[in-house]
């Protein structure tokens, strides 16, 4: 009987669906517990007045007041600006340098394996250590960078980098570039190795110059790898904390304070849980939006290269 078979099939399907839900349940529960619950809690917290250090103020529901305060908070807006500046500067330089490095490492030469491993060393060093390292390089008369600049005759006396609101960005950006370029280079190298060598052969036969080969063969085919590198680096740079915390503490004044450091100070130094949560939610929204935008972009890039 076809009807009975259909029923059996339907119940089997239902069973299978049930089983699927059962199997997925632990994963869903885990995600709810570790991702969504804390997020929801933070949003809830952000709508309260909650100053751990001022219990006499109570802990009342204040709706969007914390968000209104954030919008009016000059230090918060500046921190957002510093974060953007840092992100754009480091990601641009790292992508350019990383691409150059990857192209160089992609060529066959003796000791290539050794070079590839060596290039990764800065990436392997913990950020706190490399931040301290770069601070020492630029600090005081004994700092290598300062001593070198004087020895070469570039300047008569080295500047005190960490008290100049503009100059201070140079050591900060340099430290991040030094540490993270290898990571970008490695990602791009993987992309380069996926490109079919016959394409270059064909281009050469057609008489394409090296630049045209790069422009019309390498770059389009490298696009997915570039986009992956971009996503990782942008999101990382946007959340920068340890590097700045160790190198400048956000100073001089607050002129290198990124958003993550300001949020940390608000939440964990001043213990303003309500306001700090509001700042965290805003940062989350920005990062989430960036990720979403990139994924759209990346998706488009992938289908394009496939077609």
């Amino acid at each position: 009987m076809p009807g009975g078979e259909r029923r059996r099939a339907a119940s089997a399907e239902a069973r299978e669906a049930r089983l699927a839900w059962c199997l997925a349940a632990p994963a869903i529960a885990t995600i709810l517990l570790v991702a969504l619950f804390p997020l929801g809690w933070t949003v809830w917290e952000s709508m309260h007045l909650h100053d751990l250090r001022m219990p006499w103020l109570g802990r009342s529901f204040i709706g969007a007041d914390n968000y209104v305060e954030a919008v009016r908070d000059a230090r918060f807006r500046q921190a957002l600006g510093h974060t953007l500046l840092f992100t754009v500067a480091t990601v641009t330089i790292e992508l350019g340098l990383g691409c150059t490095l990857a192209l160089a490492m992609n060529r066959a030469f003796r000791g290539r394996a050794l070079v590839r491993a060596a290039v990764l060393v800065p990436w392997a060093i913990p950020t706190v250590v490399s931040a301290l390292l770069w601070r020492f390089i630029f600090e005081g008369r004994a700092g290598i960078a300062n001593a070198l600049m004087v020895d070469v005759g570039l300047v008569r006396e080295a500047p005190v980098w960490f008290i100049r609101s503009g100059l201070v960005w140079i050591p900060v950006v340099l430290a991040d570039v030094w540490k993270t370029t290898p990571f970008v280079a490695l990602l791009l190298l993987a992309g380069l190795q996926n490109i079919d060598a016959s394409l270059y052969e064909a281009a050469r036969i057609d008489g394409a110059s090296a630049w045209r080969q790069f422009r019309h063969v390498t770059l389009p085919l490298l696009r997915p790898a570039i986009l992956v590198a971009l996503i990782f680096r942008t999101l990382d740079a946007f959340r920068v904390f340890d590097l700045v915390y160790v190198m400048t503490g956000g100073g001089p004044g607050t002129s290198t304070e990124p958003i993550a450091l300001y949020t940390f100070n608000t939440l964990l130094q001043n213990l303003r849980f309500g306001y700090g949560s509001a700042l965290s939610v805003i940062v989350f929204a920005v990062v989430f939006g960036l990720a979403l935008g990139y994924i759209r972009f990346l998706g488009a890039g992938l289908t394009e290269t496939r077609g």
């Binding site: 250090r53 008290i163 100073g251 004044g253």
Partner: peptide
Amino acid sequence: TPVYTQLSDILQIYLHRALTRQ
């Protein structure tokens, strides 16, 4: 004052801005 640390936090920033000529 009970809010000394928060007051000091604000003051530190502005003092440092003045002393670094911002």
